[in-house]
Amino acid sequence: MTLAKPPTPMPIPLPLPGPELLAAQLIAAEIAAEPPELRRWVSFWLGAARYALEIRQLREVLAETRPEPVPGAPAAVLGVINLRGEIVTLLDLGRWLGQAPARADGPVLVLEQGGYSLGLRVDAMAALLKRMPDEVLAPAPEASPALQALACGSTADGGEILTLLDAAPLLAPQLPAAHGG
């Protein structure tokens, strides 16, 4: 009995450099030239206030998401979404912070840390910010205990002050005590 010879692997041609590859190379070069202490923040709107999360906590932004409700969940929990086979809890960040609910059609920030993912519904995306440590101020005193738990600083952008958030308390393996009734 003669065994067939396995086929010779064909080299896979790499895509020719196109505008996307060139853009990615330019962005990578820009990032490599930045000082290592520079931090990037993605800012967003909740009502009339602007907030920002460090981009290292952000996995992706979803434009439109319809959650499946979870019976008996706190008001701040909008439900769960199926994100490419992963079930992700979706919070209304406005309600979580004790404010007005976020727009039902607002974008969702999908955060990830330590293998745990969480979606945060916000009103609108704003801008990407770059800040050196000396441009980050102490957090402003906040009225809401939920906001106090997440606020890690503040910074100016144009004529307004943004609250910088650290989502790590939300990304614990279990959500902290539910806010927003």
Rank of each mutant, 00 (worst) to 15 (best):
G114A: 06
G114K: 01
G115Y: 14
S117A: 13
S117L: 15
S117W: 15
L118G: 11
G119C: 09
G119M: 06
L120V: 12
L120S: 08
L120M: 05
L120I: 13
V122Y: 05
V122W: 08
A124S: 03
M125E: 10
A126P: 03
A127C: 13
L128S: 14
L128K: 09
L129T: 06
L129I: 10
K130Q: 14
K130W: 09
K130C: 07
K130I: 00
P133M: 07
D134S: 08
E135T: 11
E135C: 10
E135V: 11
E135L: 07
V136E: 03
V136Y: 12
V136G: 14
L137M: 15
A138S: 08
P139F: 04
P139W: 05
A140D: 06
A140P: 03
P141M: 01
E142W: 04
A143Q: 11
A143K: 03
S144C: 02
P145Y: 06
A146L: 08
L147H: 02
L147T: 01
L147I: 07
L147P: 09
Q148V: 05
Q148M: 04
Q148L: 06
Q148H: 12
A149E: 10
L150T: 07
L150M: 10
L150Q: 07
C152K: 01
C152D: 07
G153E: 01
G153R: 02
S154D: 00
T155E: 02
A156C: 02
A156K: 01
A156M: 06
D157Q: 14
D157I: 11
G158V: 04
G159S: 11
G159A: 09
E160D: 07
I161Q: 02
I161K: 00
T163F: 07
L164N: 07
L165K: 02
L165Y: 07
D166F: 00
D166R: 03
D166W: 00
A168P: 02
P169V: 08
L170Q: 12
L170M: 09
L170T: 15
L171V: 05
L171S: 12
A172M: 14
P173Q: 09
Q174T: 13
Q174N: 00
Q174L: 12
L175A: 13
P176G: 03
P176V: 12
P176T: 05
